[in-house]
Amino acid sequence: MNITVVRSGGFAGIRRTWRVVVNDESSAAVDEWLHIVDACPWSDAVDLDGDGVPDRFVFVVTVEALPLESASTSQLHATLPESRVVGPWRQLIDRVQASDRADT
């Protein structure tokens, strides 16, 4: 399972990408990530763009190669403005960013 976070916008307008590849052989690791992924309201955030607030970030979150037994689709995709990055979205994005740094 791969999870990618792309952040664009912000005052700098610099595009940044963070990515993790979850070890599918570790059920504990997969379960931890799926716990957060499943909590995100994906259907509400597809194709959502910026919120019109100058200089705030826009995030694109993609999950690929989801375990088939855990979902009806193998891929999830959401675009959401920074103002909507709360709750599980915030947990997921923070964790991807931290894991990307930690594994390097």
Partner: peptide
Amino acid sequence: LARLDEAGLGGVAAAAHQTL
């Protein structure tokens, strides 16, 4: 690396409930 916090899951359930 030296300053990274462990990404805990403790707040996920509550946060998920809040958003849902």
